[in-house]
Design a protein around this nucleic acid. Structure first.
Lengths: 257, 257
DNA sequence: CGTCACGATTGACATTTATCAAGCGTACGT
DNA sequence: ACGTACGCTTGATAAATGTCAATCGTGACG
């Protein structure tokens, strides 16, 4: 059902690394690994959630809608789990999930997950840590949304993106601009104008290519704040939302070796 | 250090009900119960978090600020825990906490909490459930913020408040309007105007007294949605964020008796 | 090769929200 | 009782954001 390489990738996630082999086999026993084309709706808000999803390849948008409007709450990249909170509570989904590009997605039985939590304290601690990381990600998102204006959100997004992609002054926007607009909580038209305005702060846009020509000028506009922006640098280690939140002050290093 | 009645109240929280007596004693052993006057800052964003806070009496505002602006993320009423996510990750606080009125607050050692999680699977499951509830509360908040306009947010707030206070057409706003404005993500001036506008939808304001004269008209404006608004009815049982999120489709009733 | 669909951009305009300023009412302390 | 501080309200105005419409460029597909 799963290739061994995929099993390894899941196993090496912080969430599953702490599980016993038997518990891991139990949880992955009835799992599905599916490939979905771009634009597939995996889950609609309000749906009953039977599975924990793990994005192994591709990308997924988490969104929500109300009254003919819709917005994007997050864009996920591999390797990420999603709708963990709904699985833990065995509750309905509050967000929709849709593939952005062709994606490999692993689906783990929610029931088995909850059983494993009850039987394995280390695992449920890992779940609690992952959830804490997700929670803090949302706190950052709300703070950005309520405290900053559109231009400031964009400026900080660009700075964060630059760092996450390695720190070079030129990088590529990872998504369509329309999607970015939805993430940033504005209309595509407004994002376009924001890109035009931000040229005054030394940002050069060339299609999906962005060059931050005068980083200090941009920073003066953005005023990035570690309590809002999570400037976690890129890493090849499989990382969960919890680890992202712990850096750089990881007081509990348990991967000692 | 704690009155027996207070111990009982904490013990009966979903978070702590599942703990063994010995684990509970261990966690509450080095606990402080303190009374704070109104307006006391308990915690500033960025601070190291050493304790899990439990609000036993009074009320507490969770807020955040950036660039001389500030906003309120939540207002807590007894009995609630707060900054659980930071405690679980042993990370810095992303929000500030301040008493709104004179409050009784219990402070439990974060270190002891994390130890109890590692040793007691049932407890760490309860922590994961509470965190899931908090997470979903934030998802609702972001959806409200990004998808609705100010007047719609106010309308839904009033409907939610009406239900939470028992369902009568007349009820009392639980906070100052300036605080409500901050919760709803608008300026006090704007909230004032929103209250004036909402009179057209059959809402009569008299100081802190609100009367919803034509509920159906207001609902047509508000379009409340269970995927955004948590219309949990009032209860006398000590309830956690997780329970709030499970109602009304609690598929895992474990308080069987 | 042409056509079509779609994302991005730009302009004009409407709506919403914030800001500044003034005035009102009430609770509180002297 | 008086004054004062503070929350609330209202008005005038500015800034930000959304909406509608048109255009441009590009990539997919017949």
């Amino acid at each position: 059902m799963m290739r061994s390489a995929d099993v390894d990738r899941v196993r090496s996630l912080p969430l599953f690394r702490v599980m016993s082999d038997t518990a891991f086999r139990d949880v992955t026993g009835g799992a599905f690994l599916q490939k979905f084309p771009a634009g597939t709706t995996l889950l609609t808000e309000g749906d009953t959630v039977d599975f924990l999803y793990v994005l192994l390849d591709g990308s997924v948008e988490l969104g929500a809608s109300w009254n003919d409007k819709d917005t994007t709450l997050a864009v996920l990249r591999p390797v990420s789990t999603f709708i963990l909170a709904a699985v833990v509570l065995d509750a309905d989904a509050l967000m929709s999930a849709q593939t952005i590009e062709r994606s490999d997605i692993l689906m783990l039985s929610g029931e088995a997950l909850r059983r494993a939590m009850r039987e394995d304290a280390a695992f449920s601690v890992a779940v609690a840590q992952e959830l804490s990381g997700c929670y803090r990600g949302l706190v950052r998102a709300i703070k950005s949304q309520k405290l900053r204006g559109g231009l400031e959100r964009l400026a900080n997004y660009l700075i964060t993106q630059k760092i996450r992609q390695g720190g070079a002054d030129t990088f590529t926007l990872p998504h369509e601009k329309r999607l970015l607009a939805s993430v940033l909580g504005m209309t595509p038209e407004n994002l376009s104008r924001a890109f035009a305005s931000i040229a005054d702060y030394g940002v050069v846009i060339n299609g999906p290519q962005v060059t931050i020509a005068r980083p200090l000028v941009l920073e003066r506009l953005a005023k990035p704040d570690p309590l809002i922006d999570n400037h976690t640098p890129p890493t090849d280690a499989p990382i969960g939302k919890a680890q992202r939140e712990r850096w750089p002050t990881d007081r509990h290093q348990r991967t000692g070796s």
